[in-house]
Design a protein around this nucleic acid. Structure first.
Length: 779
RNA sequence: GGGCGUGUAGCUCAGUUGGUUAGAGCACCGGUCUUACAAACCGGUGGUCGGGGGUUCGAGUCCCUCCGCGCCCACCA
């Protein structure tokens, strides 16, 4: 028997959030039941939000989507593995800790176990990496609390026992372990090669972190001279400052204008360096004068040419983005040296102007400088154009240089179920467009260290090609403070000793392992076997090339499987001008204010109205409608219960055709909503439910009112009461994933436990099945 | 330059394998305090479905083409 309905005089949404947040925690409503087998588990690879960033409406939007799915699966009887991670790895946290405490990380310093967070430091203090990371954890703790409060307030049904941080020791260990395994299988390797380099952060960056930005530039028409007779050969360049780095000229092999030049040499202006003229298909006869200078390195095409023709390396740009101070050895004549002196130490920008001036003076700049706008490669977080410098870096194979791995990863993309399905082409495009392996080392201080040391031979040469690999059981390690087996600290940096790798890994090198980190890989294998591969990866579409792809790479290499079966890709929130909402535009609304004003159920309603993968307008109107719906659920339920609605009597008591008809219509809704949810289409599930709910309220409730008040016989009355009871119960369940607060409130009036661990509706068995009657009577 | 998506009432969006006079909510207008709900209920105005062409008995839906918007990608001469 149900408890006697205990309906408040005046049902209200006020206070429901606080009440149920507490209830759910107290009752452990969302706790993961790890006794369940894999088949009865639904595991979610939750995106760890960047805790040092601020919360925005986009978070509310996409996390609500995932939560609706999680709640549906839970009511389907699944043990839902729904963890929450905090991303405290990466530049935002690093910067924040630096500014907040006025400290800098120096990996060469030893760890100080007694170190305490400094207050009001006047001068910047250098601390060890481990101390720095501890400060990060300390500072992010309060951010995490703020996030946790918001998620709970929003009704996100995460199991708060399952939280992880991307920078703590556990994540470091998993990250290093996976890397070492990659290394042992030959998937991680070092190479000294031209690398895209951010001059501000002074670190290498990966292809996935690039973005093109349209920048003003200028074509300079510059005269080289044939070595044979001094005839001018005109090239066009937007980077005249790289003139001293020129190693060749290149033109298309079919270009009749330049055919006679192939195999000959020309001399560069100002610097008088003799370079060959070569022929290559990538040279475009339509661009500029049809013949271009190859420099080390102006762009990625230069790298291709340099590699294919085995040209010399003549770098002039240093790690700081300035022209290297020392006159390079390939610049030999006195006038050339003098010319170089004039640009030495200058930024690329000033060097460009200086060279242009010199070219004008020497008469080698032909015609007017032509202003253009062209795409320039930037580090997505940087504000200066990337340079290309030659450095030693670690890479993980990702198919960028390996056809068979590439097709295997493309196949993984096909195996993955994408929601919506058209998102798969972004993955395909990305994988097909890879132009190299995944560069994972970063010349930063904060992050997960590359767990390698290198021996130093007796001559003091570092043997990078034979790294000392730590035992897996020793992880995590910081090679800057830990000592490899068989060595002592006194041998650090000494001939015959060792040196630790100074770099850290790309933040995606850790983030790509979130399922392994959260799921207990190599830590709790029993748990891991119950959740792997995960059922769902929710994420935004702009990080398909980074987070999604890198996760697929790691899982493919380590587990020979996909990390999850389904990827649910969410869209963006657009402001009313159809632009992406962003801080810089000043149009960000604070989530907590939204929840205060409209209520969590209402905000969730708005979020759920944004279809999977679709960019959605920020629309307060939808929230008001959601609030109205929540109130309607309260009032209609109250009314139905006051009419004696009961769901404990069997459906066979529903004898009146109108009642059967209403339940028959409800069956259609149950079928449609279930089907939609199974396809991750929460929006559709909400839509069909809501639509019929209003018919139920406006028509059916009005129609049965008089009958229940007793104008007809007892069996007719009972029929209505039973129909009402089953209808309300099922409506509450159908709405529960979307509006967890109001549905659990109504549930508590007449049922025990929580609606959120009740059973998802299945089709009701009716003696008659004719939805037309209700429709006809409604008319 | 290539790819993907999108364009339906003033606004936010549904329109399932092409099938009768194109739908909902909001907004607007006009009613109703009828004992669940005025944060409600009842009724109404409003669209040549981005433009053009084609296939078809029939096109918002399929094909071609053009335009707008958004995103992803692309070797910066």
């Amino acid at each position: 028997m149900n408890p006697t309905p205990n309906v408040p005089e005046k049902p209200s949404l006020t206070g429901l959030e606080a009440k149920f947040v507490k209830n759910w925690l107290d009752e452990k409503t969302y706790e993961f039941d790890r006794s369940k087998d894999r088949a009865d588990v639904f595991s979610i690879d939750t995106p760890p939000p960047t805790v040092s960033g601020s919360l925005h409406v986009g978070h509310v939007f996409s996390y609500t989507h995932t939560d609706c799915i999680a709640r549906f699966q839970r009511m389907q009887g699944k043990a839902v593995f729904y963890p929450m991670g905090w991303d405290d790895n990466g530049l935002p946290t690093e910067r924040r800790v630096q500014n907040y405490f006025n400290v800098r990380c120096d990996p060469n310093l030893p760890y100080d176990p007694n170190f305490k967070a400094p207050e009001n430091l006047k001068d910047t203090l250098s601390i060890s990496r481990r101390n720095f990371i501890e400060l990060c954890e300390q500072l992010t703790l309060e951010d995490e609390k703020a996030f946790e409060d918001l998620w709970q307030r929003l009704g996100i049904s995460v199991d708060w026992n399952l939280t992880y941080q991307t920078v703590n020791l556990h994540s470091q260990r998993i990250s290093q372990l996976a890397f070492i395994r990659n290394y042992k299988r030959g998937e991680a390797y070092q190479a000294k090669a031209p690398t895209l380099w951010d001059v501000t952060f002074q670190t290498a960056v990966a292809q996935a972190e690039l973005e093109d930005r349209e920048r003003p530039g200028a074509y300079h028409r510059v005269a080289f001279k044939k070595s044979s007779d001094g005839t001018e050969v005109l090239i066009e360049t937007s980077r005249p400052e790289l003139l001293p780095a020129c190693v060749a000229l290149v033109a298309n092999p079919d270009d009749d204008r330049y055919k006679p030049l192939f195999g000959t040499t020309v001399k560069s202006p100002l610097f008088e360096v003799e370079v060959p003229v070569v022929a290559h298909q990538l040279a475009d006869p339509e661009k500029g004068t049809g013949i271009a200078m190859i420099c080390t390195f102006g762009d990625l095409t230069d790298v291709i040419w340099w590699r294919e023709f085995q040209l010399p390396t003549r770098p002039v740009i240093g790690f700081d983005g300035r022209i290297i101070k020392e006159v390079p050895e390939w610049i030999v004549t006195e006038t050339a040296k003098a010319a170089y002196e004039r640009i030495a130490g200058k930024t690329a920008h000033s060097a460009k102007e200086e060279i242009a001036t010199m070219l004008i003076d020497s008469g080698d700049l032909k015609g007017e400088v032509q202003a253009i706008t062209h795409p320039v490669k930037f580090f997505e977080k940087g504000d200066k154009p990337l340079e290309i410098v030659t450095t030693r870096q670690w890479y993980i194979k990702n198919g960028g240089r390996d056809e068979s791995l590439r097709s295997a990863l493309l196949e993984r993309g096909k195996q993955l179920r994408w929601h919506p399905s058209h998102m798969e082409v972004r993955y395909q495009n990305w994988v097909e467009g890879l132009n190299g392996d995944w560069l994972i080392s970063r010349q930063r201080f904060f992050g997960v260290p590359i767990p390698m040391w290198y021996p130093i031979d007796d001559n003091g040469t570092v043997l990078f090609d034979s790294p000392i690999v730590p035992e897996e059981s020793a992880l995590p390690i910081d090679p800057a403070s830990h000592v490899p087996a068989g060595y002592s600290e006194s041998q650090r940096g000494q001939a015959g000793g060792f040196i630790g790798d100074a770099d850290v890994m790309d933040t995606w090198a850790t983030s790509s392992l979130t399922p392994q980190i959260a799921g207990g890989w190599q830590t709790d294998e029993d748990l891991f076997n119950r959740v792997w591969p995960f059922d769902m990866r929710p994420q935004a579409h702009e990080i398909i090339r980074t987070w999604l792809f890198s996760s697929v790479v790691r899982a493919h290499l380590e587990h020979d499987s996909l990390p999850w079966t389904d990827a649910a890709i969410s869209g963006w929130i657009l402001d009313p001008d159809r632009k992406k909402m962003s801080k810089s535009k000043g149009n960000v609304v604070t989530p907590i204010d939204l929840l205060d004003e409209h209520g969590s159920d209402a905000v969730r309603y708005w979020a759920a109205s944004g279809r999977p993968g679709t960019d959605t307008a920020f629309d307060v109107g939808q929230m008001k409608i959601g609030r109205r719906l929540a109130i309607k659920i309260l009032n209609a339920s109250k009314f139905a219960l006051s009419l004696g609605a009961t769901s404990t009597e069997p459906l066979s008591k529903v004898t009146v055709a109108l009642d059967q008809s209403m339940l028959s219509e409800l069956n259609t809704v149950i079928r449609d909503a279930t089907k939609a949810f199974e396809q991750f289409n929460y929006t559709k599930a909400l839509e069909v439910t809501e639509k019929f709910f209003w018919v139920f309220c406006d028509d059916y409730l009005e129609l049965v009112k008089d009958r229940v008040y007793g104008s007809l016989g007892e069996s007719e009355k009972l029929s209505a009461q039973v129909a009402l009871g089953h209808a309300i119960e099922n409506f509450l369940k159908l709405f529960a994933p979307f509006m967890p607060f109001v549905t659990d409130e109504v549930w508590s009036w007449w049922k025990s436990g929580s609606v959120h661990i009740s059973t998802w509706p299945t089709t009701l068995t009716l003696s008659s099945d004719d939805p037309m009657i209700l429709q006809a009577v409604s008319e």
